[in-house]
């Protein structure tokens, strides 16, 4: 009976930290590779519009090529499934979270998972994608326990179904929990950013939450 007891307690108290590392792949950009069907017509300026475009092959001017051109904004972002933080040996499953009735950002059900705020933007698209992870569970450390040790320049890798994006830590900030700049953390940015949130500071037993929030600001690494 003692064995069963110990196993049960161990099960209840156990924390599993996944530490596998996976490779990072760059975000491939779709290319437009239409080849023009018509020969090029280059005329000297004409006074009559009708005369301008006639089919004539001129060898000195090449046909239009879209090679190397970016003609539309391809930054649609990825549906995140996994997040890796090599510096912390974190490799966690991503859960979608939303906004709670009381206005708070939701949190992942599993303390070993990371919650992506899915009403906001996707990682890799323009603006601030936001993810939150627990610093601890009821009984021990959770997925973002060591987030506070991240340093500027560290990499975060977010995996989607077929691609992965790398973000670089640019800033670390700690805010009182009721006085964090929510608009800035969740708001628009011209570049693609990913902000990671966890709790820090002293655990307020009355409020049942830590008194501070740690925000790790990161930006998408350019290919």
């Amino acid at each position: 009976m003692k064995n069963l007891f110990v196993k049960t307690i161990l099960f209840v108290l156990s924390i599993v930290l996944l530490t596998a590392c996976a490779s990072n792949t760059e975000n491939p950009k779709a290319s437009i590779a239409d080849e023009p069907k018509k020969p090029v017509d280059v005329s000297q300026p004409e006074t009559e519009v009708e005369q301008v475009v006639e089919d004539a092959i001129v060898t000195s001017i090449p046909a239009p090529s879209a090679e190397g051109l970016t003609l539309t904004d391809n930054r649609v972002g990825i549906q995140p499934t996994r997040i890796e933080i090599p510096a912390l040996h974190v490799d966690a499953v991503i859960e979608e979270v939303g906004r709670l009735e009381n206005g708070q950002m939701g949190v992942p059900q599993n303390p070993d998972h990371v919650g992506w705020f899915s009403p906001g933007v996707k990682p890799g698209s323009q603006g601030s994608a936001v993810m939150a992870g627990h610093v601890d569970s009821l009984t021990g450390p959770a997925v973002f326990y060591k987030l506070v040790t991240l340093e500027i320049g560290d990499e975060i890798i977010v995996h989607g179904d077929d691609e992965a994006l790398t973000f670089i830590v640019t800033k670390k900030e700690e805010y009182p929990r009721q006085n964090a700049p929510v608009d800035k953390i969740f708001g628009f940015t011209y570049t693609s950013t990913l902000n990671l949130i966890t709790c820090t500071g002293v655990f307020d037993r009355k409020a049942k939450t830590h008194d501070n929030r740690l925000v790790i600001y990161t930006e998408l690494k350019k290919p």
């Binding site: 627990h134 009821l138 450390p141 709790c199 002293v202 929030r213």
Partner: peptide, 29 residues
Amino acid sequence: AMPADMPKTGLGGMSDGPDYTVLWIVASL
């Protein structure tokens, strides 16, 4: 869609001092 408040991303399991809530749950268990 923006939240009005930050998430509660800690349950206190790694905090200093006894957490009577946790103790009570463990004791009940």
